[in-house]
Amino acid sequence: MATEYQYHSNIWLEEPEAENPFAARACYCRGYDVYGEVVRKAGWFEYLLLMFKGERPGTGEPELLEKLALVIANPGPREASVRAAMNAGVAGTNHSSALMAALAVGAGQYGGSQELSVCIGLWQECRFDFDRWCARLLNPSDDERADIWLPMEHAPGFDPNGDVTPTPILQSLDLLVGLAPANGALAWLKANRQALEQHVGYPLAMSGLAAAALVDLGMDPDQGSMLYLMLRLPGAAAHALEQKQMGWKKFPYYGPAIELDESGSNTDSPEATRK
């Protein structure tokens, strides 16, 4: 007999085995029989889009998501979230610690999922209005209230530490535009990239490119953020395991680089100004 402790879902239906109410005989995702049909007939990205969007994706959408997943699968060992995972891996911590570290660091506002989320929010607001984009990119935090997230410190989707648009971003933009709608966000971004870069003063970042691709896939800020977090984990995992094998003696130790300034107080530190 069912208790009152129920979870409600528009995604998932389970039918129990006759002998055990806690074991599923069949599982349905958005109405489709997962183990009877979906697993056999769908691709991974088709299934992902079904879960997130509620309907089977349109023509070309799984291919666009798959190529985006390839583009962001490994940000490389210099990137902060991967470095975080490598720190976990080299010390022999749990696998999930490595991924939790990668998720937390990869959630940030500089290159992470929060930046991407802000970008998708700007897409919803600015659409293809160049002037509006120009205004909002330079003033992305329009709520004067303090929050658990700090105000953005740069134009979302662009890299304030960049000089020129990195070649992999240009290569990926060209590739993804070819898989996206001709009148979509990626196409608009490609057409306006240089003008936007000139306006903000620094180049497009991977977060900005990924945001446009996810907008073309119909993702809102929450959905886009979740996918971005998930799809960047493979590199973090692989590099964490690699450093575990490599060993800590080959891993950089920054002790000598930390230099204590004992000349004054902390009252002029950046945090002291953030009331």
Partner: peptide, 13 residues
């Protein structure tokens, strides 16, 4: 959680 305590409110099969 038993299977029947996921209350499905999505599209029909």
């Amino acid at each position: 959680v038993r299977c029947s305590n996921i209350v499905y409110e999505g599209p029909a099969k």
